[in-house]
Design a protein around this nucleic acid. Structure first.
Lengths: 211, 211
DNA sequence: TAGATTGTTAATCGATTAACAATC
DNA sequence: TAGATTGTTAATCGATTAACAATC
């Protein structure tokens, strides 16, 4: 499906392409071109053609790209057609919001369980799931074999929990724990989300004379 | 303070440097070097020296960097010493989590108000703030002059709300609305947060044979 | 056919890495 | 002083942009 190894920059742009094509499709627009896409996304037409050609030839000379077809291809490329088991570890505020607001199915996953270490939270219902205690995590993993875990736990517990989950077969982490997991420690995939870093870049870019 | 214009790549690394130095400082470590930092952060020593030298000369030949001093400098560079007024627009699940969990002061801002369009939510207490109705937004902005707004509203409302806020003097947006705001539309700064995009990149990087 | 736009190669640009004199 | 490590210049590498033949 893909030619050589794809650079991180290209990977980061794929979701934007997919998102924008979904929007076009929902507006009933049938065709587009690298030029049009470029204008909308603030990229050059060249770059878009280069990016897409990492994965195949999806366009047609003189015509451009069929919106629905290209979106379908991107969906496959990103893996959004799959339904891989995902669990949430940590059912505090953040865990709850993610459970309730993230449409895992739209991203190629399905939520299969929510865990927390606090007995007071366990047993409560979130997004149709009963929060289970961490004690049942091991058995659950052996039975359900979740592929990824969403870590919504404190920084201190993150690496240890990730190690345990890795040993239980979890292959990827969506990490909200305000720390960078040690990627080399295993062959797993980690996507660290740092909302604080995001806000800091905004802080940096604000006018320097304001208080 | 800075030499030429700083590249986006450098800006994105600054929060990581700051975070790691904070960690070192809290561990009571006094000095470090570009080599040590590089090993910990998975970067080359060269790159770290290049990055830091965009902003000044913070090290000492033969010694390296003083952890506390370098952290203090980065704090100033990123603007974390400031206390710029920030409001949250949209007090749904996400707005609530951000209000309750983000330590704005640690990032150079202070939360001054929370707004929502739903009368049922208005009047309720979140993180010590009474949620106000959007109707009072204009007056509030004229009085308090918030510098940034955190957008936790639906996609459809995002651009319009941003335009209104821009007209009211808001200079930056931390945008959780699942859409990209039109940056050119004004001279404001936008940090778009796309949790879905983040999860998609994880999806892309998962083994292709799993379902 | 003529116009448009692709896929792809070549040129440019910028970011990262290497090297090293300066110096603590 | 000798060893270490910086700040900075030069070399390399990779990503972006430009150009254009192929072709729908």
């Amino acid at each position: 499906m893909q030619k050589a190894s794809i650079s991180e920059s290209v990977i980061r742009r794929l979701p934007r392409y997919y998102r924008y094509l979904s929007q076009l499709e929902s507006q009933g627009i049938e065709r587009t071109s690298s030029r049009e896409l470029g204008i909308q996304l603030g990229l050059t037409a060249s770059q878009i053609r280069q990016d897409l050609n990492c994965f195949g030839e999806f366009g047609q000379q003189g015509y451009g790209y069929n919106v629905a077809a290209l979106r379908r291809q991107l969906k496959l490329i990103i893996g959004l057609n799959k339904s891989r088991s995902a669990i949430i570890v940590g059912a505090g505020n953040l865990g709850k919001v993610i459970a309730a607001n993230i449409d895992f199915c739209a991203y190629g996953f399905r939520l299969t369980g929510i865990f927390d270490i606090d007995h007071n939270i366990c047993g409560s219902e979130i997004a149709g799931f009963t929060v289970q205690h961490m004690d049942s995590l091991e058995q659950f993993c052996r039975e359900t074999e979740p592929l990824i875990a969403v870590l919504c736990i404190p920084q201190e517990a993150a690496q240890e929990t990730a190690d345990i989950l890795t040993a239980l077969g979890v292959k990827g982490f969506w990490n909200f724990s305000h720390c960078d997991l040690d990627v080399d420690r295993c062959q797993f995939q980690v996507e660290n989300v740092h909302l604080g870093d995001s806000l800091m870049t905004l802080s940096y870019r604000m006018p320097k004379d304001e208080d």
